[in-house]
Design a protein around this nucleic acid. Structure first.
Lengths: 322, 322
DNA sequence: CTGAAAGCGCTAACAC
DNA sequence: GTGTTAGCGCTTTCAG
């Protein structure tokens, strides 16, 4: 910048004015400065700018795994909102490890991101206290923060959607509906299990429950066990997209009704088409990011808790009779 | 930092030493400093650190769209490599717009990322010259840079894979193999078309070609047109994952053999299973990122051009007879 | 309209 | 072992 100033025969500050489009520079001077900038290939150093101004114009995003279509869709939406606000996006995958989540959040904070959207992997967010006090805005998406922290949160209607799925199956005459979900430590899995149980009432049977990280072999074993029962399940409710896909493989053509939580590409092309309770990852991402920017722009209202509705899409698999 | 120094009764530099784990600090002093840090909730300001050191420990990634499973897989791999090198990842989606690609790259450069992995959307990368001269390392992935720029590049064997797919179909006795690919301006689409044409030799018939951004209605029309020909196609080669999926929908159960470029989840669960030429997005991401870090660590060798092999996975759809 | 000077928070290069 | 000093490149403040 100093070089540009020298080259253009002006003071440092004038170059700064031109670079930032500040008013109060004679057009001719500005032109001269711009010429010098082009000639020298000058680029403003954002780090120095950030250091001086205090705002980084960067937000952070912590998700579980970008390679998961749900989080990929959410990411893209957050990115779009960030761009609309002239912000860059730093992102990282926690891989469902609380330690990694914390590490990412802290690294983002150290880089002074203006705010963060986080899909929590851990259950304890006490480590966020100092950041929140320091003014970093945080919005939780998909899962709420651990106990003791009341912060902005955007969730899907997990329990409600699960109930809807189960009632749909009961409506077709099924009496034995199994639940195959992710590990119970995961908030969404637990909520969907809760919705399932409540909808089932006294038809609830713990032997029809399998909750663990979806892996084909383990799930096949779980299903074998259930189908070997006196009164085997005639329908399956799967707790998330990965569970649905794993279950479809593990079932290997066995004829059972199935409703899955989460929509997925090609669900309509399978035979039968897969009935799902769909949430909209892009919507969730957009809502969370917009809420974050409202906070960044000075909205100091009490923490918001937004719950996004889900919808049932019948495609055939959930309409099979017992 | 100054406050911490005062609180701990030491000089600024000592705090700096403790924070950076530099040797030559008495354990007791270090402990006193750490206590002060905790008490005051001090966090090192990365911006200042970056300004001073010149390295940001950040790399940039420009892809077409995170929400596309191929790029999501690639992203995750780049992220993992970045983390292994204690680097953060800034990422952005170009949406296949050259202007947006350039904007992202320039923004990343202004933030002084150490290096960039870019999946080019545009064909002119002259704008990168100054950045390259300034020492920013750039690796191109999935597509090469525009003419006139020789840089590190990691590509899949597009033409070879397309040839493999076509020969597979010819081997089943098909004589009329159509190609449904993305817009010809996209490098990978053009390369796959080239491989297709070369493998077909004089069986090549331009009426069996449809190249445009995949959209169900347009593709349905294209296919109708082809099937209305005197000698309609008995087999289809689709040019990328999205084209494959769109084609499957547009075909609506019509019985044709099909081989697609790109593997996709559930390809094995459709009936018949979808035969594909699979590339490995994570592998590509890893190779590109590792190459970038080799450059950042000082490797000054001539530009490398890496071509990753692809593999044919027969699942049924490509083995249907004419 | 333009410029000089101070300082953002940190680290590198030297003292002591 | 520890401290001092001089910037990194920019914006802010205030003075022409």
């Amino acid at each position: 910048m100093k070089d540009v100033a020298t080259a253009a025969g002006v003071a440092l500050k004038t170059v700064s004015r031109v670079v930032n489009g500040e008013p109060g520079v004679h057009p001719a001077t500005a032109e001269r400065v711009r010429a010098a900038i082009d000639r020298l290939g000058y680029r403003r150093n954002e780090s120095a700018r950030v250091l001086r101004r205090g705002r980084t114009a960067t937000i952070g995003l912590v998700i579980e795994d970008v390679a998961d279509p749900f989080y990929a869709g959410l990411s893209r939406a957050v990115e779009d909102v960030a761009i609309a606000h002239d912000c860059l996006l730093l992102s990282g995958s926690s891989g469902e490890e609380p330690g990694r989540e914390r590490e990412l959040v802290e690294t983002f904070c150290a880089r002074r991101v203006d705010g963060i959207v986080v899909v929590p992997a851990g259950a304890d967010h006490g480590y966020l206290r100092p950041e929140l006090d320091a003014g970093t805005k945080v919005v939780f998406a998909d899962r709420p923060p651990g106990a003791g922290l009341d912060a902005d949160t955007v969730l899907a209607d997990n329990a409600g959607g699960a109930g809807r799925a189960v009632r749909h199956l009961l409506g077709q005459g099924h009496e034995r509906v199994a639940f195959v979900g992710d590990a119970p430590a995961i908030y969404t899995a637990a909520e969907r299990h809760r919705g399932y149980r409540d909808a089932l009432g006294d038809r609830y049977d713990p032997r029809l429950i399998a909750m663990r990280p979806p892996a084909e072999e383990a799930m096949r074993a779980d299903l074998e066990r259930m189908f070997a029962l006196d009164r085997p399940p005639t329908a399956l409710f799967t707790g998330n997209g990965r569970c649905t896909v794993t279950a479809l493989r593990a079932l290997a053509g066995r004829k059972v009704a199935l409703v899955g939580f989460d929509d997925f590409e090609l669900a309509d092309l399978l035979r039968p088409g897969v009935t799902v309770v769909a949430q909209d990852p892009a919507w969730m991402g957009r809502v969370a990011a917009e809420l974050l920017f409202r906070r960044l722009l000075g909205d100091e209202g009490p923490p918001e808790h937004i719950r996004l509705p889900v919808r049932l899409i019948p495609r055939g698999s959930g309409e099979l009779p017992p």
